[in-house]
Design a protein around this nucleic acid. Structure first.
Lengths: 230, 230
DNA sequence: CGAACACTTGAACCTAATCAATGAGTGTGG
DNA sequence: CCACACTCATTGATTAGGTTCAAGTGTTCG
């Protein structure tokens, strides 16, 4: 566990004296499958480092449609925004995809820690910067790419993050429904289904219920990067 | 000028002793119309506060399509990412829309200043947070809204930022082409043209060459928020 | 005055959403 | 262990919403 925190993007490079305080001030927090760590707009009172499970960051539109922003695995930080004053609301909702455990730090402690160890602030900024870059990439994709390319991108990203080598290729190593993919790529589950089927026909992927395995990564890459006029 | 910096989101709340240093360490930087302060991917060596002019933050796709992320006016901060180590690239390009002047601070100075005055770090994070929120909003709009709603949103935002009361309504107070609007709302200049014309027919806006004036803000709001099934 | 730029408009086309019906796989309780 | 319910997935038909392309009209400016 200490290992995970030490490697977390928020507390890496923290000196051992301050790190002791980091450990002291944390609060464990468990959430069951489908439960929430926090909801979009809640006062941002805590930052989290995930220990176990998987957590989905998402937005919900007024008419109930969901947009999945990212999927987190153990060691990753979320809600880092809490280092600011807690009047800020969380910009998204954090929902557990399976029973999950995290450690939490509240604003007051975070700020005290950040004062002792400036690298924590820098780390938080680095996190935010990485996230901004990702959001911008995604926005670009939404505006300029066709759905097929967006799906390809999402699959490659998931594969690089959670891929597991199996004999047929790279398997995305957790249950992933067509709907999940649709919410990540900004389309409908129907289109995802059709697209995956077509790719399977071409031998690029192998699909099953809540399962995707990429056989020809290169094929996907060339699809995603394709400069096809649209 | 000092006033502008004092009010800038990056250096607000900075004590007068440190503020003196802020003034000392800045570098003025002027860019002509259509010139660049920096390009996406460049090493993020400086943060800027705009003094005069207008600056467009944008992304360019491999096939030349542009996406306008935001338009900056005097007093606003950009490239704040430079407070991190300069290995990070700027996540977007900053282009002058007219002859523009800004003040710049480099990473080394920024970090020294931030060490003396922790509120600078917090301010930078606040900026990033605001930007993240905006990006997420926009992403939500891209996925769930129809083009008409997105255009309505963009116009309202521009009006609230740069609107000027005139007798017919609220005028967006700088030259703004259909293409500009298209790049901000993720559509084509044709669709923008048609949409604006239709709105003019309904008396909601008045349009001219590089000019948009909103006559019935309420009409736009209800369009943007419309929960129309699509 | 001519060239460049901003805008408009119509027609054809096309992507992907929507809706409806059906099939396949998984889990649970009797 | 089977039947039923439930969730996840497929597939086809239809259609709306927007893009693309082409042609033409104003406007501004050197």
């Amino acid at each position: 566990m200490q290992e995970l925190i030490r490697q977390s993007s928020l507390f890496k490079d923290v000196g051992s004296d301050v790190f002791a305080q980091v450990l002291e001030t944390c609060i464990p927090r468990s959430v069951e499958e489908d439960g929430f760590f926090f909801m979009q707009g809640d006062a941002a009172s805590h930052a989290f480092v995930l220990l176990e499970g998987r957590v989905k960051m998402l937005q919900i539109t007024p008419n109930g449609q969901q947009i999945t922003l990212r999927i987190l695995t153990p060691g990753q930080t979320y809600g880092g925004i809490a280092i600011l004053n807690p009047l800020e609301g969380y910009p998204a909702t954090a929902q557990a995809m399976e029973n999950s455990t995290a450690l939490a730090w509240d604003t007051a402690h975070l700020r005290k820690l950040a004062e002792m160890e400036p690298s924590i602030s820098l780390n938080a900024m680095q996190l935010m910067h990485a996230y901004i870059t990702e959001l911008q990439e995604r926005q670009k994709a939404l505006v300029t790419d066709r759905v097929e390319q967006r799906i390809a991108r999402i699959l490659m990203k998931l594969a690089s993050q959670y891929g597991k080598k199996v004999e047929e290729g790279v398997l995305i190593n957790f249950p992933l429904t067509r709907k999940d993919i649709a919410e990540m790529s900004g389309t409908t589950l129907f289109t995802v289904s059709r697209t995956l089927k077509e790719w399977e026909r071409q031998g690029m992927v192998k699909i099953g219920r809540e399962k995707v395995c990429i056989c020809k990564p290169h094929g996907l890459v060339s699809l995603a990067d394709d400069l096809v006029r649209r």
